[in-house]
Write a protein that binds this DNA or RNA. Structure first.
Lengths: 212, 212
DNA sequence: CGTGTTCTTGATGTTGATCAACAAGCGTGG
DNA sequence: CCACGCTTGTTGATCAACATCAAGAACACG
């Protein structure tokens, strides 16, 4: 069921219009780049799921975003990575030289516009995330994540690509709270959880109501 | 003490390289634009402080960012505003037609690059905000905001342009918690609070340690 | 099958929210 | 200049949500 470069409506993004320096596979859990690395490539995700985020010295982790097939990641303002990217599942990426892309953008206004559009929609997702973390309860956050995942597949039933720990670190919660919230939804009949990594949304309305 | 177009090192951003459609003043508390408006202008803040954020239907509010003199705001991916912008203090802004700016960017690679740089640094600040809201305690959040405000003036003593409610809505806390945390810092000798709107950082080290 | 990992569930603890009262600033009008 | 009311901020008491700690269950993989 490989569908490279298929663009989901909710996340439609142009592929990077530059020849890839290379195409690489990463195993689940592998690091793609780390905080402090020099940021001379950007990535286009062909298949799989990637998480980007940061780690505090005491071990607390915050995931900024999950990235799915067709999306791009690894853009930085400066020369040095401020986030770490890891493969959540088995992953294949196209790697593009940042320099090649910025050169092209300097010559081609349309490419520059796409690049701009890409980052600004990333900014908007980050703002949604801020709202979620700043002002929403655990229930609302978990519901929000489930809806986000459902929207990108377009299906009410889908596999969770990430662990409970990943969900917790994205939502600013603990695994226990995520787990309890999911079984709460289960008991209220909002979702089914046939396996630990597969969700079906039974009452989308109710879940949406939780997110307003 | 007006200093239009002075760029603080920590927030150095190019002015929008387009003739302003107009220059407008807003009184403190006035709305500059609102969620749902059509997004056909961008703004350059000449003087004062602006907050951008969102409101949930039940009244919960989340401030995405504070903007200071020299900074730009009001960029949107789509045609419709997703955030509201309000004057925190008395404010003067240059208003630029979005269309004029994007036309210029399409012709001029350097302008396009600046625009890109602007949004990507906005994205990085939003990611810092996510980390703050997702994984930091109330103390750490308040310390982080104080340091952010100190950095942009370059002084250890500064006026707080915003109310406790604004601070709370930026930090994902309540006014009571912000207030208590500040008096906590006061009692530990980390700050002085000669008036309710003026802060002096007495022990910057300790505050930085709180943010790691 | 065992063994290690991930997930769930339960009991308890802590942080920050909520509710309530009071204090401090601030503008207006006497 | 003070009295007044109104807004904003502080402080206290209590509560609730989520974290933490601990144990067990389910699952994955050799």
């Amino acid at each position: 069921m490989l569908s490279p470069l298929r663009f989901e409506p909710a996340f439609a993004q142009p592929a990077l219009p530059v020849a890839a320096a290379s195409v690489i596979r990463y195993a689940a859990g592998e690091e793609i780049f780390a905080e402090g690395d020099s940021a001379d490539h950007v990535y286009e995700l062909v298949e799989g799921t990637v998480r980007t985020g940061r780690l505090l010295r005491d071990g607390r982790r915050q995931i900024d975003a999950f990235h799915f097939a067709g999306e791009t990641f690894g853009f930085e303002a400066g020369e040095v990575r401020r986030t770490t990217a890891e493969a959540v599942s088995e992953v294949t990426v196209r790697i593009v030289r940042r320099r090649a892309l910025s050169d092209l953008a300097a010559r081609n206004g349309e490419v520059a516009r796409q690049l701009y559009q890409l980052t600004i929609s990333g900014l908007q997702r980050s703002q949604d995330h801020v709202l979620m973390l700043g002002r929403r309860s655990a229930c609302e956050r978990v519901a929000g994540l489930l809806l986000l995942l459902a929207d990108r597949t377009g299906e009410a039933a889908f596999d969770l690509p990430m662990s409970r720990q990943d969900m917790a670190d994205y939502l600013g919660l603990t695994i226990e709270t995520v787990s309890r919230t999911l079984t709460g939804f289960l008991q209220e009949g909002l979702i089914a959880l046939p396996t630990v990594r597969h969700v079906e949304l039974l009452d989308r309305e109710a879940l949406e109501a939780l997110c307003e």
